[in-house]
Nucleic acid binder design. Structure first.
Lengths: 68, 68
DNA sequence: ACACAATGTTAGATATACATAACAGGTGCA
DNA sequence: TGCACCTGTTATGTATATCTAACATTGTGT
């Protein structure tokens, strides 16, 4: 799963640490999300999207394999 | 978290069992999702939404507390 | 080159989504 | 009455998201 977290975060001019605080998770969690290293819970995905001023389906990019 | 799974599933005329099979999870998982008893992974939410011919943000209804 | 901020990585602990199996209640239909 | 189908629940096990802390790397400005 790819994401636009890094891109949107840069656009807002905030660091991983700041995003993490606003979302209420640890910075490492943001690192892993940005790198697509895991499949977040729906609520976390929602909080990240809202904090970045966007929607879930705009922030997280699903691929074919995600429907398999 | 509330959902429109039951409503959309009824509209498609399929059972929990059939939805579960199409999504690739157990029927109990669908029961729990319909009742808002847990917070699914993003990929599962995506599969459910697509199988119901809808989007994540239309199927899963977020509340204020989900941003807390 | 130095200092400092931002990012990346790793290892171990905890919480919980999801699987699995088994059983119970309801509804409709022969 | 009976049976078959759909739905709900409960208990236990496994996989993994997330936390925590510590350290490594990269970038940026002076």
């Amino acid at each position: 799963m790819k994401t636009r977290i890094r891109e949107l975060r840069a656009k807002m001019g905030i660091t991983q640490e700041e995003l993490a605080q606003q979302v209420g998770v640890r910075r490492e969690t943001i690192v892993f999300l940005e790198k697509g290293k895991y499949n977040p819970s729906l609520k976390l995905a929602y909080k990240v999207a809202r904090t970045l001023g966007s929607t879930i389906e705009e922030v997280f990019i699903f691929e074919e394999e995600d429907l398999a």
